[in-house]
Amino acid sequence: MCLAVPGRVVDVEERDGTPMAKVDFGGVVKDVCLAYLPDLQVGDYTIVHVGFALQRLDEEAALATLELFRSIGALEEEFGDAWSRAAEEAR
């Protein structure tokens, strides 16, 4: 039940004095309360839990994390290639 999932804001409106949004979760669209993130706009990604947007998903941070993952082990790979090239040449 603690599941919180990323979704994309596709519409924002105000209802009973509360900011609300329609959020698309990979094809399923749900009503989400924006009381805790009133600045969210159409196109933004957010983490949603039991009908509430809890935090904006930071695209820059996401890309930086993926870049970090890609760089892990990359040095060794280059070394690895150099070693195998050297081994090839030595033959």
Binding site: M1, C2, D16, T18, A35, Y36, V50, F52
Partner: peptide, 21 residues
């Protein structure tokens, strides 16, 4: 209303709305 800190804000807001409305 069960849950950790993830769920508590939803329940807090709902009670707050109940009173406001």
């Amino acid at each position: 209303g069960i849950g950790f800190e993830t769920t508590a804000p939803a329940n807090a807001m709902t009670v707050h709305q109940a009173r406001r409305l």
